[in-house]
Design a protein around this nucleic acid. Sequence first.
DNA 1: GATTGATCCGATACTTAGTCTCATTAGAGT
DNA 2: ACTCTAATGAGACTAAGTATCGGATCAATC
Lengths: 140, 140
Amino acid sequence: MSDELLRALDQAGVRLTGPRREIAALIAKRNGHFTAADLIADASKRRLGVGRATIFRLLDLLAEQGLVERVDLPDGRHAYVPCEPSHHHHLVCVSCGAIAEVDDCGIDAVTAEASRRSGFSIESHRLELFGRCPNCRSAN
Amino acid sequence: MSDELLRALDQAGVRLTGPRREIAALIAKRNGHFTAADLIADASKRRLGVGRATIFRLLDLLAEQGLVERVDLPDGRHAYVPCEPSHHHHLVCVSCGAIAEVDDCGIDAVTAEASRRSGFSIESHRLELFGRCPNCRSAN
DNA sequence: GATTGATCCGATACTTAGTCTCATTAGAGT
DNA sequence: ACTCTAATGAGACTAAGTATCGGATCAATC
Ligand SMILES: [Mn+2]
Ligand SMILES: [Mn+2]
Ligand SMILES: [Zn+2]
Ligand SMILES: [Zn+2]
C-alpha cells in the first residue's frame, strides 16, 4: 500500500497533494524496480492528469528521504526501488527485476581493507548485486 | 600513454584508425574519471574533426574490451575510467575525481552471505567506493 | 604499390531523459 | 473562510545517446 510512503512524506513536512497520492499509489502497485518512464506510462494509461515534471520531482523527493533508492542497471538505465530508509544494498533479479534488500554483511571489513591499501578515506559506497531470484531460478 | 589502449585494440582485431588514435590519446591524457562529454569537449577544443558518434562508439568498444569501465557517479552522471581488464573495483575521490583500483578483498564472502540469506543466485556485482584520495586528504 | 571490400567515418536527424520557467492552483494552518 | 506558500501542469529547452547512410579509409591480398 501507498500509505507508508504518504505517512513518511507527511512526516517529512511536505504537502500531501493529490498528484503525490496518485503517484505514490502507482509506485506501491509496482513490484521490483521501475523507471521514471514506467511511472509516466502508468500515469498516462490511467489518464491521471499528472505532469511529467511532477513525477521526476516526487522521485527526487522520495530519494532524498531514502524512501526510494536509485539503482543503476547494468544496461545503463536509471531505475528506482522502494526502500527502507536505512543503509543497505540491493539484489536485483536480472530476469524479472525483483528486488531483495540485504543489510551490511561484512562490507565494512572490505571497505576498511580497501582504505588501508589505497590510502583513501572512504565516505560512502554502493554495492549492487545482480542475479536470479528464487522464483526465476526454479522457473527454469 | 595511449600505446597501451592501441595495442589492446589491435589485439582485439579491430582497425587502428586515425580517429581512434586521437581519441585514445585524449583518454590517456586525462586523469581520474571522465565523461563522454569531456572527451567531446577535448576533441573540439583541439579541432580534431572527430564526430560525436565516433567517441560514443569507441567508448562502447573499449568498455566491451574491459579497457575502460563505466562508473555511475553519485550525482547520476555516467563516467568512465581507464582500467585493467580483470575484475576489480574502483575507489573514486569525490574531491578531485582520482581513481584507485582494488581487487576483490573479501567481497566474495559478502555475496555468498547475501545469496544464502536471499535465495538469489548471484551472477555479478558492482561495488563503488567513494571517498577522498591521499592528496585531497592532506590538502585540507 | 595498386586493388578491393569490409570496416569505420562524420554529418545529420532523431529519440529520450531530465531540467527550467512561469502563470495558476490548491494544501494546511489560522 | 482566508491567506500565503508550496506545488502543479504546460511547454520550452538542454543534453545524452542512437540510428541511418553515403562516402572515406584501413589492411589484407595480389
Ligand atoms: Mn532498498
Ligand atoms: Mn578499473
Ligand atoms: Zn526474478
Ligand atoms: Zn582527490
